[in-house]
């Protein structure tokens, strides 16, 4: 008969986190998020503007 509480103490409980399948809005890498955001969106937008002569 198992009455040794030190044995019962080892009975294991694990909470699982809610499972959320993610989808990124932009291709931003955690290491250099801002650099990439600027590179992907900022420079592309600038290129568009330059191409059609909006700013310069």
């Amino acid at each position: 008969m198992v009455e040794d509480m030190t044995v019962l103490e080892r009975e294991h409980v694990e909470f699982l986190p809610s499972r959320e399948a993610l989808g990124g809005l932009v291709n931003v890498n955690i290491v250099v998020p801002v650099n990439l955001a600027i590179a992907v969106l900022g420079s592309a937008a600038l290129a568009c503007q330059n191409a059609v002569g909006i700013i310069r």
């Binding site: 499972r19 989808g23 932009v26 955690i30 998020p33």
Partner: peptide
Amino acid sequence: LYVVFPVFYTNVTDAY
């Protein structure tokens, strides 16, 4: 926001 970037998410916790 996940860590530092914006994301869509779907709650599929029931897939466990």
